[in-house]
Each structure stands twice: as C-alpha cells, then as structure tokens.
Design a protein around this nucleic acid. Structure first.
Lengths: 244, 244
DNA sequence: AGAACACTTCAATTTTCGCTGAAGTGTTTT
DNA sequence: AAAACACTTCAGCGAAAATTGAAGTGTTCT
C-alpha cells in the first residue's frame, strides 16, 4: 500500500490489549513465563499462547525455553523504546502524568527487578563483583533457570572462594535451602548490560536495605542513602553520583 | 485489563495500513488535505474520511478547515516520535536500512517541505528574514490557505518595502500570476518552529538552487554547497555549520 | 445561479480477529 | 510409571472493524 516503513504491522501487533499488556509487562527487561503473562493479560493460556506466537513471529519478543517453561523477553531495546513512545502519546488515562514521568527516569537509574537490583546501579554492581573477582564467569552449555527472574543465557556466574569471604564480611547471607541458582545474570533493557539476579542478587539487595544503604521508595524504584553512597564507594568502588 | 498506560488504543489506531500511511505521510510536519491523503493511502475518499475522523478523535492528528479543504497534521511531536520509534522496530521490509537511517538524520537538518525549505535551515532562514525585517508578522483573523503546503494559522507574514528591494537584489522572482499566498508559515515538526512556505518560500528555494547554493540531493533532502555556506552567511547571517 | 469540487455520513457487506475448551506434546515430580 | 504441570495446536463461535457506493452538506469557480 505504501513504500515507506512498515509501521502498520508492528503497530497492529501492539494494538491488541492482551499483547500490549504483555509488552508493557516485559518493558523493564524481565523475562517472564507464559503462564505469568497470561495472568497479567487476563486471558486464557491458549489465547495468550497465540498472541505470544505472533509477537515472536513479528520479532518483537524472543523465547528461551527452559524445562517445561518458556520465558519471553523483548527482542530488542528498540521495542521498549517504541512502547515508551506510544505511552507518551496517550498518557491521558492515568491521571498522574508528571509523577509517572519522573518515575520513569528514576527507574532507569536504580530500580529493582523483582527481588534484585537492576538499572544502572545493578549493572555497576555486577561489573564491580566481576572486577574484584567476587564472582567469575563460567561457560556452561546446559544451565538451570531462575523461576523468578526468568531464563539465563549460556554462561554462568559463580562465586569464588575469595568472594565467599568478602560476602561473609559484608554480612550477606545466602539462603542455602533454596534450589534457586546462586547467581544469574539478567539482561538489563535500559543499559543493555547484564546485572545480577539469582540468590546472590536477592541477598545483596536485602543486605543493602538492612544496612540502610538503600530504601525501597516506590513499587520498583530504589533510593540510595548517604550511607549507601559512601558504602558502595568503599566496598565496591562505585561512584553513585556518576550514575545519575 | 491492565492498570498501566493505555498503549493498546494508540497502537491499534496506528496499526491499520491506511491510517499508518497517513501518519507516515504527515510525519515530516506537513499538513495535507484529505484527498491527497486518500491517494497516498490508496483507498476511497469515504474510507479515508472515516480513518481521519478516528485519528482526530484519538488525538493523533488535528484538523484545520480551510475553504472546501480540510488539512490534517500531526497533533503533537510525540506522535511523530512514536511513528519513528515504530519504524525503527520494523525496518526489515525495506532492504536499505542503514541508508534510511542517514536519510532520517539528514532530513532533520535541511530538507524541503513540498516546494520550500524546511528543517533546521528552513527555520533559520525564517528567523533571519524576520530579524532583517524583510518579512514582518501581521495578526490577521481570517486568512487564506496555501493549497500546496496546507493551512496556516491565525497570523500572517507580509513582505516589507525594504524586503522587496532586498529580494530583488538577490534575484528572487515572485510569481505574480498565482493566487497562492505570498508568505505562509508552516510549523516544522522536528524543530517545533515555523518556517517559510507560500510563494516566497518556493521562490527562495528555487533561487538558491539556481545560484548553486543548494542541491536537491534526494527526494526531500537538500545539500548545501560551499557557495551556499558563504552566501547564506553573507546575505542572511546564517552559520550553516552550526546547523549540523 | 449552476456546475464542479472536497469532504462527510450512512447503511450494508465482507473480512478479519480474538476468544475458548478440548486434545496433544513434552517436562518435571513423586 | 503415573500424575501433575506448562504450553501449544486446532476448530468453531462471535464480535469488531474495514470497505464501498450513494446520498448529503458546504465551498469555490465560471
């Protein structure tokens, strides 16, 4: 019909309430299972399965099978940007629009991703743990998935012996009973870099809050305290001011 | 269905081929008549009329009635940004994707808007003409519309006596026979500032090309020559390098 | 004034699309 | 090995939406 860009098919894919709900749910970079998304969208599993198939087919999301689950995430950061751009066009429904704008920018700096840190801060901490050799990368073909965060990729993070001591010093306690993988990376959408998930990610965030370094300000927004600024700088060599 | 932003309705509005074609056609800030858009979309006038009504209703475009025409333009720059964001998600169809990216950035710097200059250069020239008092603003409630460019707003640009001399010196010849308004402003989408349309706008671009100051590089992209750089600087005090 | 024109509204047809339960495949648990 | 679970495929139902010509309103041209 028109020689220009094929906006119509993409927009049509996003223009169905259930599919839009899926994209919004995935917009922060998480990878969620089909069943979770079905609840989110409020439709039958069979219905959502069809929608997910179309979204995958259209290149908007990608699948990562993991056992009996299939985890879906946005295929590219451009998709998240398109979702945001559309949200900016029609912000009339939710009355708080200015609040939401600041929320959106805060979420990009430091936020939680389910139960661990994400955003720029999450990425910085992940880098720091690797640099100080608290955590090491191990390539491993068949790896388990974190049922909370979603599927990982083909390589695995492990805690070094030195790391175990350092973490003990910091007071980070790892839940031994859980079968959930110790460390996992999670691809951060806004930064396009991996951050820390798994049991370690959750334990770290928990410890940071106990230490009074961070405060859960809002649903997913994290605020860093003065103590947190000095603490992160001393223990992890992270300049939190530079993250702004 | 979901408490988040109402992306679905906006995306659905954009997800129909005819409507998408309309939005793409309007994406560069032009205001086009319904009949023009019908041809562009390739559907019957009655069909397009319905689509346009829905787009207006959804707040994506706005109407400006002018005589027996009705001119449509994008309601807000956010809409153009959303269209661009969507185009970035699905650039797979047209094979040239890198080319198109550079085209998009070039179009923002200097481009033509039908038959006159737009983009940053168009805005700069408009400013210069006002500063040097070649053109003056006159508030005028009922004004005519330019059938090529589209509808104007509520105030009108007129050429001053001094301006007439200056333009004569430059060799700009205005077509006297046409009933098309002499000067009109056109709201530039990418700059959010008015630029020059009407007979003067067309005559200026024409003269610039004859002088060898500019070259029509592509469909709507304009390239400024070395002569153009010095000429624009001398005659209009425009630093073309700063426009990059 | 009349004709041509631009556009919208309307009613009817056709197509498309979403929804679902039941059945099927494969995985994990016990 | 059997049962529970996660997900997909399929066929059929129902609703929403796109398309169009014809008719109606208003404007401009001669």
């Amino acid at each position: 019909m028109d020689g220009d860009a094929d906006i119509a098919t993409v927009a049509a894919l996003m223009g169905e309430p259930s599919r839009a709900a899926v994209l919004v749910a995935l917009a922060d970079g998480r990878a969620l299972a089909a069943s979770t998304l079905a609840v989110e969208a409020g439709v039958a599993p069979s219905t959502l399965s069809g929608h997910l198939a179309r979204l995958v087919d259209g290149g908007l999301i990608s699948v990562e099978p993991s056992g009996r689950h299939r985890y879906f995430r946005l295929a590219a950061p451009e998709v998240a940007q398109a979702v945001e751009a559309l949200a900016r066009v029609a912000p009339s429904r939710p009355i708080r629009s200015l609040r939401q704008a600041t929320h959106a920018s805060a979420i990009r700096q430091a936020r939680t991703c389910y139960d661990h840190l994400a955003g720029r801060l999450g990425v910085a901490i992940c880098d720091s743990l690797l640099n100080s050799e608290i955590v090491r990368v191990e390539t491993n073909p068949g790896m388990a998935a974190d049922p909370i965060v979603g599927a990982g990729r083909s390589n695995q993070y492990v805690i070094t012996e030195y790391g175990k001591e350092r973490l003990k010093d910091l007071g980070v306690e790892l839940d031994q009973s859980s079968r959930r993988p110790l460390v996992l990376y999670c691809l951060d959408w806004s930064e396009q870099r991996p951050h820390l998930g798994g049991r370690l990610g959750a334990a770290l965030l928990n410890r940071f809050i106990v230490l009074g370094w961070m405060i859960q300000a809002d649903r997913r927004v994290i605020r860093i305290t003065k103590d947190g600024q000095t603490g992160l700088c001393q223990e992890f060599a992270i300049d939190t001011v530079a993250l702004q």
